[in-house]
Design a protein around this nucleic acid. Structure first.
Lengths: 228, 228
DNA sequence: CTATATTATGACTAATTTGTTACATAAGCA
DNA sequence: TGCTTATGTAACAAATTAGTCATAATATAG
């Protein structure tokens, strides 16, 4: 559930430290030691977040962020910048340049994990482990359970992910394409209509508890989860 | 079950005192009087916890912790630091540098044992000696016995460890990889599907008492032990 | 109210995941 | 050593899930 994090850092020791810290916290990791390598990895599979060192050989971290932000596919990927510089100006500059947050070296593993969690909570709540609840419908990513006023509902993995995404992104219409990207992952090639079928299956799973009402069709646009 | 504890301490008298205390409490011990020696011992067999003196000849305890934390194999080993310094700054620094807890000299054997137990309970509850019990299903790490409402169940060692891990980590899904890491140990290389087979064997062992219901499959995710 | 676009649904097949058994090997013990 | 137990794998069976399509139902513009 906790997604893939790309580490762009050229100092092996630091990269390793970050790597193990993140893995211990249940994240998958990817490592790159240069901007080129990072771009290549991002190209193959969009990470859920990137940690980017400010100082890199060749093109700098700033350049990488610039590139990430200018590409439609990657522009919404959360980015945290790692920097040895502590000057106020630099901090402001770093944020200004498109990072979601920054961490000044040296940092503790605890701080790193906390920052990541904060950014993910804001930018990709479906990747956190928090229990989500709406009017008695509860989704628990840790136990991997859905309950309606206490009793368990059963559904397939895709329906679980779909519901979890909806419940962390309520009151907003998503097109089928957006749902495919967000719930199925980018780079997967399936028909848009497939979403309809899974919506159907999710509704069926929710039907007997009445929560299927929350999954609403928005004609010509897509689907929406509404709390009311 | 109470695992092996590495003592890294150069003062023989103190080392001896700790050694005796721990052995009396059922732990196995390893002793090192320098960082080099400690590294050598850790290399041969990963202890379940390390007690490390802050002040050591040559490289300091801090350096040792740094090394432990930067190696994938050892990074999750719990560490308790022994320090003569009592200043607030040092305490904070010690924790910051990667120790799980610290004990200020002089300390009582009772305190030492309590701290170790606390750290193990937090970091590796399956290593403590406490009897674990759920709805009449009881696992006793000391006698290495499982009983269902009083009468004994028999199962192999792996199934025992698996059950013990589950019962100390209930209501949470674990992937096969996570179970391999936690129950089989790190740097073992076995197939993921092996977990399935042992789950099967564990279920068989629990079957006649009905407790096999607690071992639940979460399709697409892994397995979970549920109390209900 | 009809034509058209859009969505819902059921059925089918393919693909994936898990359960189970059997077997070869290793380890432990008498 | 010979016997028992434990372990890891492979192989096959069973169950579940995923994706696609055809068709029915429904909404909306005009």
């Amino acid at each position: 559930m906790t997604g893939t994090i790309l580490i762009v850092e050229d100092e092996p020791a630091i990269a390793e430290l970050i790597d193990v810290t993140l893995k211990r916290n249940g994240h998958h990791t990817l490592r790159a030691s240069s901007v080129e390598e990072a771009i290549h990895l991002i190209d193959r599979a969009l990470p859920n977040l990137a940690l980017i060192d400010w100082m890199l050989p060749g093109a700098s971290g700033i350049d990488l962020i610039k590139r990430i932000r200018s590409n439609k596919r990657t522009q919404s990927m959360p980015v945290i910048m790692l920097t040895a510089k502590a000057g106020e100006d630099d901090k402001l500059l770093g944020l200004y340049k498109g990072a979601d947050d920054y961490i000044t070296k040296p940092f503790s593993p605890r701080e790193l994990v906390a920052r990541i969690k904060a950014v993910l909570r804001r930018r990709a709540p479906q990747l956190t482990d928090d229990i989500v609840e709406t009017n008695g419908l509860q989704v628990d990513p840790v136990t991997h359970r859905v309950t309606a006023n206490g009793d368990a509902l059963r559904m397939g993995p895709s329906e679980f992910r779909l519901l979890h995404f909806f419940m962390t992104h309520t009151e907003r219409v998503y097109t089928r394409t957006q749902l495919l990207d967000q719930v199925w992952g980018d780079h997967v090639f399936v028909e848009e209509r497939t979403v309809d079928v899974h919506i159907r299956r999710l509704r069926q799973a929710l039907e007997k508890s009445g929560y299927d009402e929350h999954i609403q069709t928005v004609r010509g646009a897509g689907y929406r989860f509404s709390k009311s």
